[in-house]
């Protein structure tokens, strides 16, 4: 469990990092970008990845570690650590689902090192932050030496552990919409132990109109497909209504029908599907409750 030899490059500016990534990629060398290292380092130690060069972003705090409010949005630097999101009053006020999600991630040691950008770029479909990014359709800013582009989460997550990032790009910033008025968010997860990757996880955001009817509802599922699955389009029957929990459950049974999650030794496909129904019901009911409570 020791990594193969690699070169380590620790740039002190984002510009240098992008330059190095461009040059090395052009030379045909395999490069990995290191942020918090909570997934990459085990992968290296198990020799599942054997890059020639590691570009360590950890000196780029001044460029990439920030949480800044904008109109209807919050911009978050990719190198922002989990614990910073977890404890930020700005986040808990404006995107409370991130605060809830952070409490489900790993343990203190992991949250003090792991980063938002690292979690998104790793794109584990059971992880909490890709789910939240997908639910809120966060926008990802991808930079290379020669260009900057911004794409929505829906175009970012392609498949299991695969994103639409080019080998020359670094994820630098994430823009997340703030909680609209009369809205509630909820994340409901099932893991075998606290802090584990989810077996299944559901995130929901519901908005009510002045009459107490649902005007908008969003739902994303994790752990039941290769990427976080955006189920929002199937929630149309809820819009304009005041559903009871059993109505929601009925709809969830219907929309989870076609899921085909992979099974493993801890949770087979049928069980994951069953959990998806339970968790999505719980997330929507909890989201609604939060609007009523506020």
């Amino acid at each position: 469990m020791k990594p193969c030899a690699f070169q380590l490059y620790t740039p002190s500016t984002l510009e240098d990092a992008l330059e190095a990534l461009w040059e090395l990629t052009e030379e045909g060398r395999s490069v990995k970008v290191l942020a918090g290292g909570q997934s990459l380092i085990p992968v290296l130690n198990m020799r599942l990845a054997t890059p020639d060069v590691l570009i360590d972003l950890n000196e780029l705090d001044s460029d990439l570690n920030f949480i800044s409010p904008d109109t209807n949005h919050i911009k978050i630097g990719a190198l922002t650590r989990h614990y910073q999101l977890e404890t930020s009053p700005l986040i808990s006020k404006n995107v409370p689902i991130i605060t809830e999600a952070e409490r489900l991630i790993g343990h203190v040691a992991i949250r003090s090192r792991g980063t938002l950008g690292g979690s998104l770029a790793h794109a584990d479909p059971s992880a909490e932050l890709p789910l939240v990014a997908s639910l809120l359709n966060a926008r990802m800013t991808l930079q290379s030496k020669h260009a900057t582009r911004t794409i929505p989460a829906a175009e970012f997550f392609l498949a299991y552990l695969m994103t639409s990032m080019e080998p020359t790009e670094i994820l630098t910033e994430i823009t997340i919409p703030t909680l609209p008025g009369r809205s509630g968010q909820s994340i409901q997860e099932f893991a075998l132990r606290h802090g584990d990757f989810a077996i299944a996880v559901a995130g929901a955001q519901v908005t009510m109109d002045e009459d107490g009817c649902i005007s908008d509802a969003r739902l994303t599922l994790g752990g039941v497909g290769g990427t976080p699955l955006d189920m929002s389009a199937s929630l149309a029957p809820l819009v304009g209504s005041r559903p009871l929990p059993e109505d929601i459950e009925r709809l969830m049974k219907e929309i989870c029908q076609d899921l085909e999650p992979d099974g493993d030794i801890h949770a087979d496909s049928a069980y994951r599907k069953d959990l998806a129904i339970t968790l999505s019901t719980r997330a929507l009911v909890d989201g609604l409750q939060k609007v009523k409570d506020s």
Binding site: M46, R193, H194, G195, I265
Partner: peptide, 13 residues
Amino acid sequence: GSFMDYLLPTTRD
């Protein structure tokens, strides 16, 4: 083959 699959109880359990 790892503590991701072999589940030891943690303090929370």
